[in-house]
Design a binder for these strands. Structure first.
Length: 508
RNA sequence: GGCGCUAUCGUCUAGUGGCUAGGACAGGUGGUUCUCAUCCACCAAACCGGGGUUCGAUCCCCCGUAGCGCUACCA
């Protein structure tokens, strides 16, 4: 039944209706992983059969996001250097609106075979029917009114509707007998009674196919081997199977992925937080973190390994490791994954990634050396959960901070004491030559000073650190001091200490 | 209402016909520490319920229950 020699060809087939949903990202990832793992092809097909929901630029955006995330496609659409969408592959076009003839041809074929029929029912009648059925607590299904039309009636209706410059829809005629069972690679066998399946519209009155016809036709002609999609498609899969059968085609394999859930366990949606991949990227999540996190939603390696590169994922991915229950999207875990990947970055790479966020926060970092930026980045590296947090935290590295004089006072001390310590510190630091302003040397000197004077660490280090940063929380005073001297000079360090002293004189 | 899927700590999950039911995130406590973060140690935290099958069930079966999905000329 299953031909193991057949080449693996998977596809990701989104509708260009807006942003890229995090669920789409996972589907795309899994279909990519499976294709690569099996040395097969990964295809990008765009399903634009609903003309009412099209969003301009959505397809371009989608391709761009996929590329940014490192999910590759061997066929279908890609972004050319000039930013336009180009197509490649031998099974095109890969845009459904360019394949209308093909769908119409097969819809007609199905009608001729008696596997489908024209339906002339008005929207009003359909609405009415549904209303009645729900009122009677009956299943809401099409009543096959038009299936029972005589040949003469059909001819008449056809002429009539053409006169109104309209088209009938085509419905698939579900066999009334028997069962259809799907062999899902993740969920196993699921059997449906045919009589419970609705006669789905497969060709709309605007000449476009519905999803149900389009997937079957395209997956067949594009020689797709495995359809990987969300669990919400399970109920329509038997209909697809029946269409394959009516057309005399061999169906693809199916692997349905468990849903990704909101914290309240409903299907992940906007309005309960971010679900757009673009937004996560914009907020400073690294693609490695996002990918790793998303991969663990419904899949796990069955070992204790947590951190996975794309290569690791390709190696270890398998449908047998995908579970069936939906997975709640937990942003704590996402943050953790992200911080892990931030820690792996070299300070220089981190600084480069940080530049747009400094820009966003209105920090003029452009006049500073890359070396300095890297040093600053390194100081925040272990504190960052996402890149967008960098702004306010590092502003003091670029210009003198503004703060309340009270901040300078250590919890176990008072203003007079703080002022005194700062003055002494200023004296000490002014005696140090520039080459003595290294992190380690500063630590040695200041600790020596504290020890000689028998001071508390806190009574000295707290005022020092806050005078330099203007922040309650920050990296340690020695590294801040050394970094500041590197970027803004020893002069600036001493100036900040003076400012602090005068603040304590005037304000407290 | 109909059809279907699912069910282990708050969350992601591992696991087995007999284990102190394991790990990670989050939470808590302690250590390091001027602060925050990191790091380290520790703590708390789960097998949906009821029947079977069995010497023994979290695991196998049945029935409930709950949650979710689908039920469009949307995908």
């Amino acid at each position: 039944m299953i031909n193991p020699i057949k080449t693996v060809r998977t596809r990701f087939a989104p509708s260009p209706t807006g942003f890229v949903h995090i669920g789409s990202l996972r589907t795309a990832l899994f279909s990519f992983l499976y294709a690569r793992k099996n040395h097969g092809a990964h295809i990008l097909r765009i399903e634009d059969t609903d003309q009412n929901r099209l969003v301009e630029g959505a397809a371009e955006n989608l391709v761009k996001v996929m590329r940014e995330m490192g999910i590759e496609f061997d066929e279908g659409y890609y972004l050319a250097d000039d930013g336009s969408l180009k197509e490649r592959g031998n099974f095109g076009p890969y845009l459904q609106s360019k394949r209308l003839d093909l769908y119409q041809k097969h819809a007609t074929e199905l009608v001729e075979k008696g596997s489908a029929y024209y339906c002339f029912c008005s929207q009003e009648r359909l609405d009415e029917l549904r209303k009645e059925q729900t009122a009677l607590k009956k299943p809401a299904m099409y009543d096959r009114h038009c299936k029972n039309l005589s040949e003469d009636e059909i001819k008449l209706k056809l002429i009539e509707i053409k006169g109104q410059k309209k088209n009938p829809v085509v419905r698939f005629a579900i066999p009334q007998e028997g069962q259809t069972t799907i062999h899902d690679l993740i969920y196993g066998d699921i059997t449906y009674e045919n009589k419970n399946l609705d006669d789905q519209v497969i060709l709309k009155s605007d000449g476009f196919p519905t999803y149900h016809l389009a997937v079957v036709v395209d997956d067949h002609y594009m020689q797709i081997s495995h359809v990987i999609r969300g669990e919400e498609w399970i109920p329509s899969t038997p209909k697809h199977l029946l269409i394959y059968k009516a057309l005399g085609w061999e169906p693809t394999q199916f692997a349905h992925l468990p849903l990704i859930l909101n914290p309240d366990k409903s299907k992940l949606s906007k309005r309960q937080g971010d679900v757009a991949v673009e937004d996560f990227l914009k907020h400073g999540y690294l693609k490695e973190g996002l990918l790793n996190f998303v991969a663990f939603l419904g899949w796990n390696p069955k070992t204790d390994q947590e951190l996975f590169s794309l290569t690791d994922l390709i190696e270890q991915f398998d449908f047998s490791k995908v579970n069936k229950a939906g997975a709640v999207f937990d942003d704590n875990k996402l943050d953790w994954f992200n911080s892990q990947y931030i820690k792996k970055l070299t300070p220089t790479d981190l600084a480069n990634l940080l530049k747009p966020y400094w820009q966003q926060s209105g920090i003029s970092f452009q006049n500073f050396s890359d070396e300095y930026l890297a040093t600053v980045a390194k100081l925040e590296q272990e504190r960052l959960k996402k890149l967008s947090e960098i702004g306010e935290r590092t502003a003091y590295f670029f210009k003198a901070p503004d703060y309340d004089a009270k901040l300078l006072i250590w919890k176990k001390s008072d203003a007079g004491d703080a002022k005194q310590k700062l003055s002494e510190l200023a004296n000490l630091l002014s005696t140090l030559t520039d080459d003595k302003f290294s992190n380690s040397n500063l630590e040695t000197e200041i600790k020596k000073f504290i020890a000689e004077k028998k001071y508390d660490n806190g009574s000295v280090l707290w005022p020092l650190r806050t005078a330099l940063t203007g922040q309650e929380k920050s990296p340690g005073p020695f590294e801040v001091c050394a970094t500041l001297a590197l970027g803004l000079g020893k002069k600036e360090v001493l100036k900040r200490l003076e400012t602090a002293v005068s603040k304590l004189t005037v304000d407290v």
